Amino acid sequence: MISVRRIIVGIALAFTGYLALRGLWWTEPPVQPLVIVAALSLYLVTIWLCIFWEPRRAQIPSPVDGPPTGLIGGSRTRLPRWAGVMALASAFIVPTAIAVAVRPEDRTDPFATWYLGGIGVLMVIVMVRRRPWVAWIGIAALAVGSIYWMGLVNAMSLGLVGSIVWVAATQLMLLSIDRAARDTAQLAQLQRAASAWQASQSGRQRERRIQVQRALAVAGPVLTRTVATGGALTDEERTQAHLAEGRLRDEMRGPRLLDDAVHAELERARRRGASVTVLDEGGLDGLDEAALGVIRAELAETLRSARSDRLYIRTSPDERVAVTVVGRSASGETLSDEDAVDLWREIDHPPTR
Results as ranks from 00 to 15, higher is better:
Met1Asn: 07
Ile2Tyr: 11
Ser3Asp: 15
Ser3Ala: 12
Ala39Trp: 06
Val45Trp: 13
Phe52Ala: 12
Trp53Pro: 00
Pro55Trp: 10
Asp65Leu: 15
Thr77Ile: 04
Trp82Gly: 01
Ser90Arg: 00
Thr96Cys: 00
Thr96Arg: 11
Val100Ser: 09
Ala101Cys: 04
Val102Glu: 02
Phe111Pro: 03
Phe111Ser: 13
Tyr115Ile: 02
Gly117Phe: 13
Gly118Ile: 06
Ile119Thr: 06
Val121Asp: 06
Leu122His: 08
Val124Gln: 10
Ala135Phe: 06
Ala140Trp: 10
Ser146His: 07
Tyr148Arg: 07
Gly151Thr: 01
Trp166Gly: 13
Ala169Met: 15
Leu172Glu: 05
Met173Ser: 12
Met173Tyr: 15
Leu187Ser: 12
Ala188Phe: 04
Ala188Pro: 01
Ala188Gln: 13
Ala196Asp: 14
Ala196Gln: 15
Arg209Ser: 08
Ile210Lys: 11
Gln213Ala: 14
Ala217Ile: 00
Val218Trp: 00
Pro221Glu: 02
Thr226Val: 08
Thr226Tyr: 10
Val227Ser: 03
Gly231Val: 07
Glu237Phe: 03
Gln240Ala: 12
Gln240Trp: 02
Leu243Lys: 03
Arg249Trp: 02
Glu251Gly: 02
Pro255His: 05
Leu257Ile: 04
Asp260Arg: 13
Asp260Met: 02
Val262Ile: 04
Arg271Phe: 01
Gly282Thr: 09
Gly293His: 05
Val294Tyr: 01
Val294Lys: 12
Glu298Gly: 00
Thr302Gln: 10
Arg304Val: 00
Arg304Gly: 12
Ser308Arg: 09
Leu311Ser: 06
Pro317Met: 07
Val321Cys: 04
Gly327Gln: 01
Gly332Ile: 01
Leu335Asp: 12
Ser336Trp: 11
Val341Tyr: 01
Glu346Met: 13
Glu346Thr: 10
His349Arg: 15
Pro351Ser: 10
